[in-house]
Design a protein around this nucleic acid. Structure first.
Length: 848
RNA sequence: GCCCGGAUGGCGGAAUGGUAGACGCAGCGGUCUCAAACACCGCCGACGCAAGUCAUGCGGGUUCGAGUCCCGCUCCGGGCACCA
């Protein structure tokens, strides 16, 4: 008898895998490659259970593919630029670079004991000049390709700290440190022309068959292709230069219901009016308060001011509409100006009701009378409506038909044109921060904006910076900032904005194929390894990161940095759920919450006996202290227990709640499996038994099922099957040889999830070499077939009996057997059978 | 506010439109033990003595048959372009 002892055996197997080079990715043209990638972590300080879950999923895929004979690339890196490093420097002193590299060292040390099949020789960090220098080279390539430009864009401005704030740093419209009311302010910023690819990024979604449907839908809605009418109102009483007001609408069919026009507070007309009209100026100033997020704008109180300017209705020159400035209109979408049709848009309805503007229906529900509206009538697109006013006539039609008719009418009569627009905006990448990739351009008074010469790359971040005052320290760094113009040699200034960290993460997957190359990528390596076959990460990245990566793949190909294929970076995507935990909270006298770590809470009480309030499970977060440190679990039970737990029970796309009981149960099961193997190993050679064939069939069926479930990303179901196989071996009375065979297959099938225990069992049963390299078990189809089948019999849809018949019995015979069944006869009680439905191999339903 | 998901026993969950609750946890009963723990065996949706009835967030609908499809809600979660 020997004990399951993960603490000593896990490091031993990790050393064995290392020395055998099991996980080193090899460019081997003779073998099929498989590239599996998990979204790389931000080096926040310590790994958490979410990381364990994410990387274990990737590991299961990678290990299965290795066993199936693929040449596997499974790399790891660090998304190492970002705000937290600067925040740490401001709060605790120190330097973002030191903080970041320190965290990377700690987290790497924490990841090693998990026994992940990572090729660490390809490790990269985005804050490494070796990485961001290549990124700068690509930025310059993109400039040359016309994919980069500058324009004014709004940012969150903290008027007290005199600094730009991230959306995260705006809390209830106020700066997180100063508490001052945030304003929207315009700044000249760098942009990538992702909008050049709107149509293509949308169309190509159809080809992403192995992406979750919901992610494709979210991206499609985000890109937001719409067909609408663009036309211009003729203005009355507007300042010079504003004789026309351009409007885009997706609902031109409601034009006859217009009761006002409205423009964004950021619209040029609003800016022109604010100069001369104090009332407008006051409103616009008020409307610019608050953050820049669409959520803040859309959920705030809808306010407006009448500018006094009027516009003529395009279909009736005598009909004038007032022009309002409204705080809910986004300058970034359409033309920043709309017409309001209160009868058929709820937001316009609320606005009109509030300010006493007319509400005039254009159509009513088919068959309904025209009556006063209590809310906007917005039909579904396919719903037929009856027009009661306007050019579209009296006939009924659907919304889609009406829109098309209205565009046709406008084009025929020359007052507007049908246009296709996208909601997707260009990608603003400028950040007024230090800890990011410097934008490699120089501003020269004579030459304008000049890219840095490629031979001068990387433009390195200076180390000697201080974070003792708000703002970007690069702005205050004279020797770094003040340089000679690369073009004319005259004194010039370096761009001090750095890049959005999403840029860093938009191409790292390609860099992994040649992480040390002197160019961003290397054709031969990209050709072999790309695309990523399986990408795994959180659903919170469903839109931005994934869309930016898809854009970057295209931009890189355009600039020759991603040769040949790789138009789509990720062939298959899996979005995993979060790891959650209950939150334990107490309140102080003032009612402010205090949070407590799970390890400090026993039976709902703190050590001093205070009862805690239990808040339902939520994403593990440091601020709520509902975290379990993976290192504690590994120390107590070993990595395999943590891995087995996060893969069992919950489906991987859903959240999983970490519970101490669950971890304990996982540990117990692994012990049971070890004990089972140990018992079989200690049986004398050639111990006879009964039921060999049964156990073999169970083993083959398990191999088939587990493989199917792993390949379908249903790890919880794979684990359920592994429980069944372990239970079956436990109960079996088969011969020693067959039991050994079964337990070795069990070890192999478990090896992606619990690789160390699998090696232990493999070795104990006399397996050759490492189980990590043993060929994946293949089920014999002959062992999977059944000869009989049990069919439930329903009477009027309720299950009343069951029969067991040969699998291939013809339906007519099944009917006879079913109707002759004693229970069926009893239930029918002589009633005539109206209908009999036999679904072969499935069910019989008798209708009376 | 807008876009996208989710909801099934005490708990996590399973179920190509075809026997609702696989598998696991907790619980209950038993074996072993002086005893406890461990381990092992068995039971385990609710109500009912039983036959059976009721059960997949709520309200409708389609179907021989609905957890699954359709319509209308509720609650919870993710995203909303400077968190990563």
């Amino acid at each position: 008898m020997s004990r399951y002892d993960p603490t000593t055996s896990e490091p031993r197997w990790q050393a064995e895998w290392d020395s055998a080079g099991v996980f080193t990715a090899r460019h081997d043209p003779a073998r099929r490659k498989y590239y599996v990638l998990e979204m790389f972590p931000y080096p926040s300080g310590r790994i958490h259970m979410g990381h364990v879950r994410n990387y274990t999923m990737g590991d299961v895929v990678a290990r299965t593919k290795i066993a199936q004979g693929f040449s596997v690339l499974h790399p790891m890196g660090w998304d190492a630029f970002g705000m937290p490093a600067e925040n740490a420097a401001m709060e605790r002193g120190g330097h973002p670079q030191d903080w970041t590299y320190g965290n990377i060292a700690v987290m790497k040390d924490q990841m090693k004991p998990l026994g992940l099949s990572i090729d660490w020789s390809r490790e990269l960090a985005t804050c490494d000049p070796e990485y961001y220098g290549q990124q700068q080279a690509m930025f310059i390539d993109m400039m040359e390709a016309g994919l980069v430009y500058r324009k004014a864009a709004v940012v969150n401005w903290d008027p007290v700290d005199m600094t730009v704030l991230a959306n995260e740093q705006v809390i209830d419209g106020k700066g997180w440190r100063s508490g001052a009311e945030v304003e929207r302010r315009e700044l000249t910023q760098w942009f990538f022309k992702i909008s050049n690819y709107s149509e293509e990024l949308l169309d190509a979604l159809d080809g992403l068959k192995d992406w979750p449907e919901k992610v494709r839908l979210m991206q499609a809605n985000w890109i937001g292709k719409s067909r609408g009418l663009q036309f211009a109102f003729e203005t009355v009483g507007a300042p010079k230069g504003f004789e026309r007001l351009e409007v885009y609408t997706t609902r031109p069919d409601t034009l006859m219901g217009a009761s006002f026009a409205a423009i964004s507070p950021d619209h040029p007309l609003a800016k022109a009016l604010e100069v001369k009209d104090p009332k407008v100026a006051a409103f616009v100033a008020e409307a610019r308060k608050g953050g820049t997020t669409e959520e803040a704008i859309e959920t705030g109180e809808k306010l407006g001011v009448d500018t006094g300017v009027r516009v003529r209705h395009p279909l009736d020159p005598d009909w004038e509409l007032p022009v309002w400035i409204a705080n809910f209109i986004l300058m970034d979408y359409g033309t920043g100006a709309i017409f309001g049709c209160p009868a058929h848009d709820q937001r316009d309805f609320d606005f009109a009701t509030k300010y006493g503007l007319p509400i005039k229906p254009v159509f009513v529900a088919e068959g309904a009378d025209e009556a006063a509206l209590t809310e906007a009538f917005v039909p579904m697109k396919s719903e037929r409506v009856r027009f009661v006013s306007g050019f579209a006539g009296e006939e009924t039609q659907t919304g889609d038909e009406a829109v098309a008719a209205a565009i046709a009418h406008a084009e025929k009569n020359g007052y507007g044109v049908g246009v296709t627009k996208f909601r997707l905006r260009d990608w603003g990448i400028s950040r007024q921060r230090y800890w990011g990739c410097p934008i490699p351009v120089i501003h020269c008074t004579a030459c304008g904006v000049v890219p840095e010469k490629k031979e001068n790359l990387p433009v390195r971040l200076p180390y000697d910076v201080k974070f003792d005052m708000p703002g970007n320290p690069l702005d205050r760094h004279p020797t770094w900032r003040d340089v000679a113009c690369p073009n004319c040699g005259m004194p010039a200034k370096r761009e001090t904005d750095t890049m959005d960290t999403f840029v860093d993460s938009s191409w790292y997957y390609a860099r992994f194929t040649a992480p040390r190359a002197a160019t961003p990528t290397v054709a031969a390596e990209v050709d072999y390894w790309m695309n990523v076959d399986q990408y795994i990460g959180g659903v919170e990245h469903a839109i931005l990161h994934l869309l930016y990566s898809r854009f970057f793949a295209r931009a890189m190909q355009r600039t020759g940095n991603l040769p040949k294929k790789a138009i789509e970076p990720f062939n298959a995507l899996f979005t995993q759920g979060m790891v959650t935990h209950e939150i334990y909270m107490t309140r102080d006298a003032a009612g402010r919450p205090a949070y407590h770590l799970p390890e400090d809470v026993t039976d709902g009480k703190l050590a001093d006996g205070t009862a805690v309030e239990v808040v339902p499970s939520a994403k593990m977060s440091k601020s709520k202290k509902n975290v379990v440190d993976p290192m504690d679990i590994i120390a107590a039970y070993g990595a395999d227990t943590a891995r087995w737990f996060v893969m069992s029970d919950s489906p991987p796309e859903r959240d999983v709640e970490w519970t101490a009981a669950g971890a304990e149960a996982a540990y117990k099961h692994l012990n049971r499996v070890w004990t089972l193997s140990d018992r079989i190993a200690s049986l004398p050679e050639a111990t006879p038994g009964t039921g060999d064939d049964d156990l073999l069939r169970v083993t083959h069926r398990a191999a088939a099922e587990v493989t199917r479930q792993i390949e379908g990303f249903a790890f919880n179901k794979a684990i359920a099957k592994l429980y069944e196989l372990a239970n079956a071996i436990q109960k079996s009375d088969a011969s020693n040889a067959v039991q050994r065979q079964a337990v070795m297959v069990l070890a192999q099938l478990m090896s992606p999830m619990t690789p160390h225990l699998a090696e232990d069992i493999w070795a104990a049963q006399g397996g050759k070499g490492l189980v990590a390299l043993a060929p994946w078990p293949k089920a014999d189809p002959a062992m999977l077939t059944e000869t009989t089948v049990t069919l439930p019999i329903q009477i009027n849809g309720k299950r009343r009996a069951e029969i067991t018949v040969p699998k291939d019995m013809p339906p007519a015979e099944v009917e006879q057997v079913a109707l002759a069944d004693e229970a069926v006869v009893r239930f029918l009680a002589g009633q005539p059978v109206k209908k009999l439905i036999v679904v072969p191999g499935r069910i019989v339903n008798v209708v009376v």
